[in-house]
């Protein structure tokens, strides 16, 4: 049972769909949406509830689109 719960908020309009965050996530929380944003980029979405708030995704994101929260359970 995880001792922390995390969550990420993705600014999908600024996301360029580079997928770099998806490979940085230890828990495979992130994947590409089947939808596109107004610029035509597939953006990143959460696909499970396993986020631990490590911020790896946010710190490799070249466009600073990810905000990370972490809460002790």
């Amino acid at each position: 049972m995880a001792k922390v719960k995390g969550d990420v908020v993705i600014d999908i309009e600024r996301c360029k769909g580079c997928e770099v965050c998806t490979t940085a996530c230890p828990n495979e929380v992130l994947a590409m949406s089947t939808q596109v944003n107004s610029k035509g980029y597939r953006f990143v979405v959460k696909v499970n509830a396993d986020c631990i708030g490590c911020a790896n995704c946010a710190i490799v994101c070249p466009d600073g689109v990810i905000t990370v929260y972490k809460s002790k359970v």
């Binding site: 969550d7 908020v9 911020a55 946010a58 070249p62 600073g64 990810i66 929260y69 809460s71």
Partner: peptide, 30 residues
């Protein structure tokens, strides 16, 4: 999979610094 209940200032671990402007960068994806 959103957890809006933990989106509080004390739980914030990472967000874009204010020393960057809000302009969307022109760089290629990635």
């Amino acid at each position: 999979f959103d957890l809006p209940e933990i989106h509080t200032p004390e739980n914030l671990v990472y967000t874009k610094t204010k020393v960057l402007t809000d302009n969307v960068m022109h760089y290629c994806p990635g």
